[in-house]
């Protein structure tokens, strides 16, 4: 099964002909991802990486039957790109762009709320279903096919977790990078729900950070849902001091509720297998799967 993206996804790249778009689209195509074209306003009709370029997302949906989009558009234009994709009927919108003004995302959140689409990110590494589709900027070779789902706010920590899981002789169904911004399209809880309902996924790795309530909300949902599958959790930032943002705009301890320690406690209380060390994610997954 897998979630969000698979070998049948018809993917377009927004910001296709730019340097970021070109580089990562090339990598995605080499991985075997079904990239059906791209959008760069004003360059419609051209070919790029052997695929058609469209002026608008609507045209890409009409002519290439696109249903998934990955966005590499610069921050000043990214919100518009997301809304264009939503309006054109794209079902899964994955926004990689970092540094979108918060006011723009307030508009996006409101705009897409009554449209039939799912936004992943922004400021995220994307989504990968190993062996089928890499719709993101992650190194594909780290992810081997298997039965463990991964959800994370962080890029490199996702790669780290996947690498550890693979070294235990296991693999990944789908890895979802939800992003580290204050306003994101898909929450930890929503991503967990997708993997919980995926038949192939037998175990979920949930990697969080200090700040916010996303992991706590997800943990409470997991318990209310009956702890159907084992979840391994790690919260980065146990040593982060109060009041300082750690790289991700969202990673800051505001009060006693969103420290790493408080979150780990909530996770454990809701039946999640919490690891203290980021070096032990793979081991814990192998343990809960009885391997």
């Amino acid at each position: 099964m897998s979630v969000l993206v698979n070998k049948d996804s018809k993917i377009i790249v927004q910001g296709f002909t730019g340097s970021e778009g070109t580089f990562h689209a090339t990598q995605m195509i080499e991985y075997g991802t079904n990239v059906v074209g791209g959008v760069t306003p004003g360059k419609g009709g051209q070919k790029h990486l052997d695929r058609p370029v469209f002026n608008t997302v609507a045209e890409a949906v009409e002519k290439a039957k696109a249903d998934t989009s990955i966005i590499f558009v610069p921050p000043a234009f990214a919100a518009d790109a997301i809304m264009e994709a939503a309006e054109a009927g794209i079902k899964v919108i994955i926004c990689i762009t970092e540094g979108i003004p918060v006011a723009d995302m307030v508009k996006v959140k409101s705009y897409i709320s009554d449209r039939d689409c799912r936004l992943i990110g922004p400021n995220c590494p994307g989504v990968i279903t190993p062996g089928e589709a890499k719709v993101g900027i992650m190194p594909g070779f780290v992810f081997k096919k298997g039965k463990v789902g991964i959800i994370s706010k962080s890029g490199t920590l996702t790669y780290e977790a996947a690498d550890q899981v693979v070294k235990q002789g296991l693999g990944i169904t789908t890895a979802i990078g939800i992003g580290g911004d204050p306003i994101i399209g898909t929450t930890t809880k929503e991503a967990v729900e997708l993997l919980m309902n995926d038949d192939e996924t037998e175990c979920i790795v949930m990697i969080g950070e200090i700040g916010g309530q996303l992991e706590a909300d997800a943990a409470r949902w997991i318990k209310a849902d009956g702890n159907r599958k084992p979840v391994v959790g790690f919260i980065a930032g146990q040593t982060a001091p109060k009041g300082r943002t750690m790289g991700h705009a969202g990673a800051i301890v505001g009060g006693s509720d969103d420290t790493a320690q408080a979150k780990m406690k909530i996770l454990a209380e809701n039946g999640i297998h919490v690891v203290d060390s980021p070096a032990e994610i793979g081991l814990k997954v192998a343990e809960v799967l009885g391997k």
Binding site: S152, K153, S154, G155, T156, L157, T158, E160, G180, I207, E209, I210, F234, A236, G237, Q238, T239, A240, R244, M246, G247, H248, A251, A260, D276, S277, P278, A279
Partner: peptide, 25 residues
């Protein structure tokens, strides 16, 4: 010195568990 914010925080945590204290992010 780490690439990525999440991994950087994870590395700081690891330093603490190894008996040190992170001097920076």
């Amino acid at each position: 010195m780490v690439n990525g914010a999440g991994l950087a925080m994870g590395t700081m945590d690891l330093i603490k568990q190894a008996g040190g204290e992170p001097a920076n992010f």
